[in-house]
Amino acid sequence: MSQSRVQPMQAPYAEDIQAAFDSIMPPGVPPLKLFRSLAHNPRVLRRMLAGGLLDRGSIGLRERELLILRATARCGAEYEWGVHVAAFNGKAGFSQAQLADTCAAQPDAGLWTASELTLLALADSLHASADVDDALWLRLSEHFRPEQLIECLLLVGLYHAVSFVANGLRVEHEPGAPRFPA
């Protein structure tokens, strides 16, 4: 990826921007480059942070992160994929083989549970066609309730949008965030 198209803002930040960063970042952790880049448009930054789904939802953290990793990998958003691996894999507990598999053209069924395979298929289906066929929906429904499936759909769509922004702005990688496997 080439150089960042919009340089991330540097501290000190305007009061409203600092408040937005404080709402999303753990204490003492500097704001991510993506957030600092979006801060050039404070309204967009605030709306994106308000629309996020990183809170406690109807699906588990591991399921959420699996959808995010697959969606960002399918979009080629190495920045966002790496940020999520760095920030959440300690709790999500994916093995190195599983992390690599989120970037594979075809997931290895031997690495995943049946419900996780349906989530990977969901992310792939939405990426390929912006839809979910009836057979996949039926498989998903065996593992997830309607409110969970709504959250899953929105997560994949939201992280397509985040991927578009990270890729379009050419956001530079965060220190310590892993890259896609070779």
Rank of each mutant, 00 (worst) to 15 (best):
L117M: 10
D101W: 01
P12N: 13
A11N: 08
A11E: 14
M48R: 11
L126N: 00
V165P: 04
S129W: 10
T113C: 01
A114M: 05
E142G: 08
R46W: 04
G28C: 14
H127S: 08
N41D: 08
F94V: 05
I68N: 14
S95M: 11
G60W: 06
P30G: 11
R43S: 14
M48H: 10
E147M: 02
L49G: 11
A105W: 07
Q18L: 12
S125W: 00
A14V: 10
L49M: 14
R70H: 10
R74P: 09
Q98M: 06
E15V: 15
T113A: 11
L140P: 00
A123G: 01
P178A: 14
G157R: 03
A20V: 08
T113H: 04
G57Y: 14
A109D: 06
I59Y: 04
D134H: 07
G76V: 03
P42F: 07
L122S: 00
G51F: 09
S163E: 01
P107T: 00
L119T: 01
A11W: 08
F88C: 06
L69N: 08
W112K: 02
N89E: 05
Q148C: 01
S115F: 05
E15C: 08
D101Q: 02
M1G: 15
S23K: 11
A114H: 05
M9I: 13
H143C: 03
P31R: 12
